[in-house]
Design a protein around this nucleic acid. Structure first.
Lengths: 242, 242
DNA sequence: TTCTACTTACGAACACCGTTCGAGTCAACT
DNA sequence: AGTTGACTCGAACGGTGTTCGTAAGTAGAA
């Protein structure tokens, strides 16, 4: 991860880079690591400056020498995990598959880190690793013959969809974990409850929800993600140079 | 502005002093109203139990007799604003336009209430007003000849997209307001900065982002929303009974 | 009317939170 | 050797959601 030569986004504070060999334990990378460990295990809500500082047996204020504020820390954490995403080299004929694959990879990575996607909902991700993913996705779209403007905007919309679904999914995962149940089991019983609720809605006001209660609540998280993904990709494909 | 603090006007002096309202205005509806006022003016982050309670000149604990917790309050607030959304009656031949119109209406309503969409990202909206919107959208899709399963899932994906974009958009609106600038002006300067950033990325690692910096940052919030919306609707249309 | 049951109100307190301040530490440059 | 300046970190500020115990007011029964 050689990201130091990237220009800083204008709104992001420059980070002090003087190396200090005396106390090696506390640095931006270590703080981000600790934050990711917490978010993975307990979710974004559990990430607090004090909590992270406690990992290093110090106070919250110590972190502010390495990170401007919590917001920046969350962005750094998000960008770090973007480094886990596989970005395939463009193969023009397979652009749809490649976009799907890249989206799946991103979705899987975000899922692995609990509800960290919430941090990405809040900003335009401009960290080096997020940029690498954007560059890769843009390259695939352009190679596939999607016009530049469509490709650019599709990139934006895909990212939004990716992040939003990951966040929503993580909330269900958390609910499952909170009940001490596997995600699949929870999904099933939740869907079952919801279906029952829809089926019992007053028929005169909600005829369609009632009639389609079962199908409304069918399908797992991944299935629905793929469905929406294909919706978008198919939509983009209409613009592609045949 | 509540007028409970004002002295009684003389013509009300002898009115029933014990009859009904020794306690005037604390109920779920009033609490939701106060919350919406705060979220509209200052955003979801500014909504706190103490803040709302202060409107009624009381303490935060008083609210818990009418609302289970903050999460429920936010859901109630969200459902309330869903009541503002226009839901057209299905006209089979115009289903695409109607979905677009419904989505636009929803988007506009959410935008009007700042970043309240964040509350909707966290749950499956099952309040009465949200159900009304879902029922309406489902009715339009089904009337348009979209198969039930596709319609159900599309509903889900459309809602996710709607809410996610509204939330993202509200963050930009907040950033603009925080700088005391109109949203359009802010969007322009932000896009300008971002374009400059993309243009200065190292060419070997980010050739496509660099080359497309201008088009990447073109278009306003609404334009991009419509673009993504059409992507999804077009994708759904492929399934519709011709 | 009086007593009781029940619902609501609400100050105080608990355990947190992000951030700032300022005094202190200590490696590195002049 | 002295100075500089990045780093550490306890204390404090002003918040947060929620719980608890008690007070107050109302409705129904006796």
């Amino acid at each position: 991860m050689t990201d130091t030569e990237l220009p800083l986004p204008p709104w992001r504070r420059g980070l002090p880079k003087r190396a200090r060999p005396a106390r090696p334990a506390l640095g931006q990378a270590q703080i981000v690591d600790a934050g990711l460990r917490i978010v993975t295990e307990e979710g974004v809500e559990a990430v607090s400056m004090r909590r992270i500082a406690a990992v290093f047996h110090t106070g919250a204020s110590s972190l502010y020498a390495h990170v401007a504020n919590k917001e920046e820390l969350l962005q750094l954490m998000f960008d770090r995990i973007c480094g886990d995403i596989d970005v395939p080299a463009p193969e023009p004929g397979r652009w749809r598959d490649q976009i799907r694959q890249l989206a799946r990879s991103s979705h899987a990575v975000m899922g692995r880190y609990n509800d960290i996607a919430r941090a990405a909902l809040a900003t335009v991700p401009t960290g080096p690793n997020a940029l690498r993913v954007s560059e890769g996705m843009l390259a695939i779209l352009l190679a596939g013959g999607v016009p530049p403007k469509v490709a650019s905007w599709a990139l934006d919309r895909l990212f939004l969809y990716l992040v939003a679904d990951s966040y929503e999914g993580s909330l269900h995962a958390q609910a499952a974990a909170g009940r001490g149940v596997t995600e699949g089991e929870y999904g099933d019983t939740f869907a079952e409850q919801l279906a029952g609720y829809f089926e019992n809605l007053p028929a005169e006001r909600f005829p369609n929800l009632r009639a389609n209660a079962r199908v409304m609540t069918s399908g797992g998280q991944d299935e629905r993600f793929e469905f929406g993904l294909d919706l978008i990709i198919d939509g983009v494909a209409r613009y592609a140079r045949s």
